[in-house]
Amino acid sequence: MAPQNDSPPLLEVRNLSIEFPTRRGTLVAVDDISLHIDQGEVLGVVGESGAGKSLTGNAIIGLLEHPGRIASGEILLNGKRIDNLSYEQMRRIRGRDIGAVFQDPLTSLNPLYTVSRQLVETIKVHTDLDTGAARARALELLEAVGIPAAKERLSSYPHEFSGGMRQRVVIALALAAEPRLIIADEPTTALDVSIQAQIIALLKRLCAERGTAVMLVTHDMGVIAETADRVAVMYAGRVVETGPVASVIQNAHHPYTSGLMGSIPHMKHGVNRLTQIDGAMPRLNAIPQGCAFNPRCEKVFDRCRKERPELISIEQNEVACWLYQSDVGGVS
């Protein structure tokens, strides 16, 4: 998974596992995944609910909720480990080096403080600017994210904004300290499609201008298609396929990825029936042995039920599926 050049990728996740100890045993929610994001790159992480995509994002910014914990693996930012930092050290990295945009803009903002106060606070915590300069910077940011009459809106409270405008404020907050990486967890899911297009365009433009890398976590393949450079498809806590976005969408190898693509209603094609993947994602306490997708897979064979496939390179993609590994043999 390591890139070819010598400089380390901006973010590297190595063999990360996240588990939840419970009274009835330990549940493994994210199982040995590896990802990397280069400078200025947009990585889409896509999967259905429960695939572990949000947990991965939360683990990177050090916001795993108790009792969830990193069981093994490393997270490296610019080659330095950040998964073993203390809460206080991590707090300084969050915001300054890694920004975050969450799904619900109303719960990410403090309803009791004006937008200006929240922006100024964030800017002052992470930079050396004094209050006056921080206020000017806050105004600049609100203008950059396209809030009309930004000067007047500075003293507004979050509830006075519409959903789309709130998400713009959250993006302004995430960009406040010019981080090099933004984790955007379903940033447009709570918004209408017409607003969604605006927010995606905004996020993409601002990050391109600033050279900020984005890890875009979403279940919406359409958003990934227009935004991401590379995409990682997750299923039941594992990455099943990863590669350049065009290659994964148009030339999917893993049966889950191709099923997922077929199940999206398509405007251009006159399809009468959608491809359907029967069944549902397994629960964490009942992840099947071997390939986790095997009970729903049409092309399942013996080996899928016994051994777990690892990612191997097929054309431009990396795919974890025994269909393509017969000749490799005994990789696990």
């Binding site: 519409s162 209408d192 297009a197």
Partner: peptide, 24 residues
């Protein structure tokens, strides 16, 4: 027309939708 334009498409990879300004 605006609603139809804003549907993300799997065919236009890397092409941003043309967002129309404004909200309801």
């Amino acid at each position: 027309q605006l609603l139809l334009e804003t549907i993300p498409s799997l065919e236009n990879i890397g092409v941003a939708r043309a967002p129309l300004a404004g909200e309801v």
